[in-house]
Amino acid sequence: MSNVVALKNYKASSPVLEQPSSVDNKQVQNQFWIDCLIKVAKTQDQASFQTLFAHFAPKIKTFFVKQGLSMQEAEELMQETFISVWRYADYFEANKGQVSTWIYTIARNKKLDYYRKTNRQVNTTEMVSEDIAVDAGEQFDLRMGQEVTAFLPQLPEEQLEVIQKVYFEELSHQKAADALNITLGTVKGRIRSAVNNLSKLMRGGL
């Protein structure tokens, strides 16, 4: 319980990290990518597709390299990702969010597919739950009409940062510690707090 109070105080006292202008810019940028995707979907517009490609393809290649794949494999999977972007542009739901998230999920699925085909082991992130099981399971009832609404912004920035580094940037706990200039113990502690907080948020609030 004390953690919950501490977290609320933390949120109340933490400075606003994102200036409104950068949020606006992000939205404007995303709308631009959405417009490109719509043109690809509706008129197979190659110029819009090339704009998306020029921005995202080199990043996607980096994404695959970071997964431990060779330059050649990364180039091939980047191409396959964009073939799917072209083919499934129609399926992107503009109201659902960011184009970068949609492209990320395509790339992630290409990676998983490739790993399966080549019998590679998917690298998992070290679990911090007490039970080192694959999964400890959660049990809760949701009250009627209860919706998950953006809960990531409710996490303290320092916890969110560690989650992003460890889960999405593929850094080991030690490398995340080095990158953030904190100790290994602090990384583990923050992940544990983040997982606890997320678990509470999932159940319907802190």
Binding site: P58, K61, T101, A150
Partner: peptide, 21 residues
């Protein structure tokens, strides 16, 4: 919940440096 976590993946993708094609 998964969709929201995936948005972190999208943000990370945006923050990656470019690898020449």
């Amino acid at each position: 919940v998964v969709t929201e976590f995936e948005s972190l993946g999208g943000e990370t993708l945006e923050s990656l440096s470019d690898t020449p094609l």
